[in-house]
């Protein structure tokens, strides 16, 4: 029976260099004696030791299970230790990985685009240069931004009093300040019963 295929590991930031060379050694070490550090192992080291995340958080970012991340991390440390002790060079390559970048969407022209330069901040749409862009991957947690785009109105069925809708709060939980009864969303069949 063949083993299960490896899950693809997600790499958010490729390493800036392709490897590390020892110096001060008398022997000229060839590529054959080098240690091959996989991209996923580099990424595990970066997340756990540089970004100071715990294994659980790092595993979510790399899109693998927590035990898998711990195994990748252990292998990475073992390889780095081996390279330090034996004085061999480290080459970062290989591994079962895919690169992923952040995706954005533009509200003005409706296009989607990614950010290949991880360090550079994206501020405007590359197509229409509109600044009205949102990060597509992030969950809409910024409620203020959403409420700015929410133009719903709550209306009282009794007196017709209107007030702007609060994002995340059902209209039926709003109480009309004049009549003291529950309000409904304007434009729905229920609200048209008013007059």
């Amino acid at each position: 029976m063949s083993p299960r295929p490896l899950r693809l590991r997600k790499i958010s930031n490729p390493p800036p260099v392709s490897g590390f060379k020892p110096y001060g050694s008398k022997k000229n070490r060839s590529r054959a004696e080098s240690i091959f550090l996989h991209y996923e192992e580099y990424e595990a080291i970066r997340l756990c030791d540089y970004e100071m995340l715990n294994h659980n958080q790092a595993s979510v970012i790399m899109d693998v299970s927590r035990p898998t991340l711990t195994r990748i991390y252990a292998r990475a440390r073992q390889k780095i230790a081996q390279a330090l002790v034996q004085g061999s060079q480290i080459i970062i390559e290989g591994g079962k990985i895919y690169f992923d970048s952040e995706w954005f969407s533009c509200k003005s022209c409706g296009c989607y685009f990614n950010n290949p330069e991880k360090e550079a901040k994206i501020e405007k749409c590359p197509l229409c240069h509109s600044t009205d862009i949102i990060n597509f991957d992030e969950n809409p947690e910024n409620e203020e931004e959403i409420s700015a785009h929410c133009h719903d109105v709550c209306v009282c069925t009794n007196c017709g009093h209107e007030q702007s809708h609060h994002y995340g709060k059902p209209c039926s939980e709003e109480i009309c300040p004049k009549c003291g009864i529950r309000m409904v969303k304007k434009g729905t069949p229920h609200s048209k019963l008013t007059n």
Partner: peptide
């Protein structure tokens, strides 16, 4: 993934 590693920006319209 190929374009990501080549640092070419993709715009989906």
């Amino acid at each position: 993934s190929l374009l990501d590693s080549l640092k070419i920006q993709m715009i989906v319209l």
